[in-house]
């Protein structure tokens, strides 16, 4: 079975960490990741850029809407995710729009990835 693990935290607190604090967290997490990667049971690890870098593609009807900012509704649940390579934000949004059009409704938040390691390749 594959599992996806999502990380949640108060962004205003994380943005208030000093560089030393941030580095310390990342170093501790890396130790945990390495142990699992050695067993060949860890895939990609990504740290997303802040929500201010997010754009949301939403389908409430036609046409699909593109809005600045993160996904903000609480009445919908996280059901899946994609990790893509894109030449530009426009390219990424184009794909998200196509996904939205293929869906009867819902939203796709497009967020640039800041930190990324693919442990399968790294090993």
């Amino acid at each position: 079975m594959k599992y996806a693990i999502f990380c949640y935290h108060a962004e205003n607190a994380v943005c208030s960490w000093s560089k030393e604090q941030d580095d310390a967290v990342m170093a501790k997490l890396k130790t945990v990741q390495e142990a699992r990667a050695k067993a060949g049971k860890l895939g990609p690890v990504a740290r997303l850029m802040p929500t201010t870098a997010a754009t949301t593609v939403r389908k409430d009807g036609e046409p699909v809407m593109v809005l600045d900012g993160p996904f903000a509704e609480t009445k919908e649940q996280l059901l899946g995710f994609y990790l893509i390579d894109a030449d530009s934000l426009e390219d990424a949004l184009e794909f998200a729009r196509a996904l939205s059009e293929a869906n009867p409704g819902g939203a796709h938040e497009v967020r640039p990835v800041g930190f990324f390691v693919d442990w399968r390749e790294a090993q």
């Binding site: 108060a10 205003n12 607190a13 208030s16 960490w17 000093s18 604090q21």
Partner: peptide
């Protein structure tokens, strides 16, 4: 790093809104 430093970050992160 002390626990205090993390509490400080949480408090100063909340400060503008509070």
């Amino acid at each position: 790093m002390t626990d205090l430093a993390w509490l400080d970050a949480a408090i100063s992160g909340a400060r503008p809104q509070a």
